[in-house]
């Protein structure tokens, strides 16, 4: 059930990804909350998230920080999340923080991870809402959305990077 397309291919600001993992629920939950494990999977192939850049305060209001590095060109993409809800081992709610540093939050997307037991397996529902590339973060150097967008550009052979103009 992809919510990317609401009606006839009309995009919305949200989407859902559902995955079933061959692992018990507590392991999947820990993979999300243990920095050593985050370092092993966060970001697609071609992206490294070094353990030394990851700090996770796993409680409501806690700040999560990490830095992704593009293996191809060494470009760094810092990310900051605010931990909103922690219900071990079934639910985790994070919001993204733009800008990543101090200062008022101008934009946030909300990421909800829900884990359901399926016998020995775990069904993960990953829901993102509030997505936007906005005027305000166009001017920010490390806006979360635009970081991902640039990252995605690196990861997508279709889009040759020719960003001359300031964003």
């Amino acid at each position: 059930m992809a919510e990317t397309s609401a009606t006839n291919g009309t995009p919305t600001r949200e989407f859902t990804i559902t995955r079933v993992f061959e692992a018990p629920r507590h392991l999947v939950f820990t993979a999300w909350t243990d920095p050593r494990q985050i370092a092993r999977w966060f970001g697609p192939v071609g992206i490294t998230t070094p353990l030394s850049t990851i700090s996770l305060d796993v409680r409501p209001g806690g700040v999560w920080q990490l830095r992704m590095i593009d293996d191809a060109d060494g470009a760094e993409y810092p990310l900051t999340f605010i931990c909103r809800e922690v219900v071990e081992p079934e639910r985790l709610v994070l919001s993204t923080r733009v800008p990543t540093g101090p200062g008022p939050i101008v934009r946030q997307a909300v990421l909800t991870v829900t884990l359901a037991e399926l016998g020995d397996r775990t069904e993960m529902t990953f829901h993102v809402t509030g997505l936007a590339m906005s005027e305000e973060n166009a001017g920010l150097e490390s806006g979360w959305s635009s970081s991902f967008d640039r990252l995605a550009e690196h990861l997508t052979p279709v889009a040759p990077t020719s960003s001359g103009a300031a964003r």
Partner: peptide
């Protein structure tokens, strides 16, 4: 509309790619 869909799709691919790695990681640790 195409542009918006394309942007979302690439964003989604970021996470799909991460979750592929998460699946492999969970396999490894077990």
């Amino acid at each position: 509309l195409r542009e918006a869909t394309h942007w979302l799709e690439r964003y989604r691919q970021f996470w799909e790619g991460s979750f592929d790695r998460l699946a492999a990681h969970l396999h490894e640790i077990q």
